[in-house]
């Protein structure tokens, strides 16, 4: 009796400990595939990029790479193309936020109370969103063709001279701003609309009773209550805009005269086309840190606002 009791206890303890081990290992079965993939294709490359930035890694001779200290970085800040790309992306980011977010907010306000044609208008404004960046870039390359593009023939129809658009160093970046804003505005309009619909009718009615004009209630009710939505949209646009590459790659190849060269496109060209992995990594570190900081600020702000 005593013996079997002890036996049962020991058996119980044994199975318990096996259970605990299984209990502790099992979550790792579930985690493992994702962690391995994230480790190999995100975490490791992020760390390696920092390391490569201090070497003269040439894509075809990875074994001969040597530590070169900060020389990639000093070279970087006297590289006119990199500096030009930083200038271009600053212009692009500022313009795209004004044009795209402004258009999205404007459209949302315009169709918010327009019940009759709402669906039709929404579909129209949203239609560019369904096209990929490659598709819109190729499409607008034809539309903006200086000699036989539809846009110039439309402009001439209303008495405006034909424009060079993508072939002009002064206009190319703004043409890309326009195309990108045209593509992205419809999506953000829907988010603004959702934000507008969250504002309750009663607030407006109360303001009306207090004698507020339409303009005043827009200024003092709509705008402040839309602030969380606006912050979210401004920052997501900002972060996406920093990564501009496909449009200039397809539409202008960075030209004319590097007027549409962007940092990510230059990183791609030096690292992949010219095979200078070390140098392109240094650029990635400088520019990647900039984007990471903006993203970090956005996440902090989003936490406070919402």
């Amino acid at each position: 009796m005593e013996y079997s009791d002890k036996y049962a206890k020991r058996e119980k303890r044994k199975s318990f400990s096996l259970e605990t081990i299984r209990f502790h290992i099992q979550p790792f079965y579930f985690l493992l595939p994702a962690m391995v993939l994230l480790g190999i294709f995100l975490f490791l490359p992020a760390l390696l990029t920092i390391y490569y930035a201090f070497t003269d890694y040439y894509l075809l001779t990875p074994d001969q790479r040597e530590f070169v200290g900060f020389s990639n970085f000093t070279q970087l800040f006297s590289d006119p193309v990199f500096m030009k790309s930083l200038q271009n992306i600053s212009i692009f980011v500022v313009c795209i936020i004004i044009v795209q977010v402004g258009a999205a907010l404007g459209l949302a306000l315009l169709i918010n109370n327009n019940k009759k044609s709402n669906i039709f208008l929404k579909v129209a404004f949203f239609s560019p969103v369904v096209m990929s960046l490659v598709v819109i870039s190729v499409l607008w390359l034809y539309l903006l063709n200086p000699s036989d593009g539809l846009i110039n023939s439309m402009l001439q129809g209303i008495g405006i001279d034909a424009q060079p658009f993508l072939t002009s160093p002064n206009q190319a970046i703004f043409a890309i701003v326009f195309v990108s804003a045209w593509q992205g505005a419809g999506y953000q309009m829907l988010i603004f609309l959702a934000g507008l619909q969250n504002i309750s009718r009663e607030v407006y009615e109360a303001a009306k009773i207090d004698g507020a004009t339409k303009w005043k209630s827009f200024l003092h009710i709509t705008l402040p209550l839309l602030r969380p939505t606006t912050t979210l949209i401004v920052f997501t646009t900002l972060i996406a805009a920093f990564k501009l590459i496909i449009q200039p790659m397809i539409m202008t190849q960075g030209g004319p005269l590097n007027s549409t060269m962007t940092p990510i496109y230059y990183i791609y060209q030096t690292g992949f086309t010219d095979r200078l992995v070390g140098y392109s990594s240094a650029m990635t570190v400088v520019f990647g840190v900039l984007i990471a900081v903006v993203t970090f600020v956005q996440r902090k702000l989003a936490k406070e606002e919402i």
């Binding site: 490359p45 990875p62 990564k243 590459i245 990471a292």
Partner: peptide, 26 residues
Amino acid sequence: LFSLLLALLIVPVETIIITQFTIIHN
């Protein structure tokens, strides 16, 4: 692990494609 995951959210993937390429190459 979870904090690390959240930290990974701010890594701009598009900037590290060259290094990703060297890994695929290796």
